[in-house]
């Protein structure tokens, strides 16, 4: 009975790992997959295979994949909004704007990484490393991107065609300037 449940879980986890959009999540699902399969080996009476699977499949392969993902292009997005806004939380968690931005980046073979921040936009612009900073103040989106970033033109096109109603301002800045805009 237990083995049957675990075997079905294995199949489900494999399908989930194949169908996730983000690679990092797929790596985590694979780690869980090999952990469960090592438990299955234990139930089938092969403890030494279980040890090998647990160490190699769960630890070493997961870490190797995570290091490999670092080579993969990661597009860091800072999203900061007013901390006093009452419906900020459901906006950041489930906004169609961010979702479409993510799917755009996935389509261009980049791994989106969104960081929600409550710091004011100026400190983010001067202190943190980012590819795109989005600042939301009452229905206006201010998007900051570097001038050198060649992805920005395509991004602007995409945003204007799909979210023309959202009052989006795109600001290009050169690094090292102070950005009063």
């Amino acid at each position: 009975m237990t083995t049957n449940i675990l075997l079905i879980t294995l199949v489900v986890l494999a399908i989930i790992a194949l169908n996730t959009k983000k690679l990092r999540r797929a790596v985590v699902y694979l780690g869980v997959f090999s952990l469960i399969s090592s438990f299955l080996y234990l139930l089938y009476g092969a403890p030494d295979v279980a040890i090998a699977e647990a160490v190699i499949g769960t630890t070493i392969t997961t870490v190797l994949y995570l290091v490999a993902l670092k080579k993969y292009q990661i597009f860091t997005i800072y999203f900061c909004s007013d901390p006093n806004d009452p419906n900020r939380r459901n906006l950041t968690n489930n906004s169609p704007f961010l979702n479409s931005l993510e799917s755009f980046l996935v389509k261009r073979e980049m791994e989106p990484q969104i960081i929600y921040s409550e710091k004011p936009i100026k400190t983010i612009l001067t202190q943190d490393k980012f590819d795109l900073a989005i600042c939301q103040t009452d229905q206006k989106f201010w998007i900051y991107g570097s001038v050198d970033d060649y992805q920005l033109d395509a991004l602007e096109d995409h945003l204007l065609t799909n979210h023309g109603d959202l009052n989006i301002h795109l600001i290009r800045y050169t690094e090292g300037d102070d950005n009063e805009a």
């Binding site: 403890p47 030494d48 040890i51 160490v55 070493i60």
Partner: peptide, 13 residues
């Protein structure tokens, strides 16, 4: 259960 390979993998961890 275990042996050289498994123990070595644990040490590498």
């Amino acid at each position: 259960p275990g042996g050289g390979f498994q123990g070595g993998a644990v040490l590498a961890a």
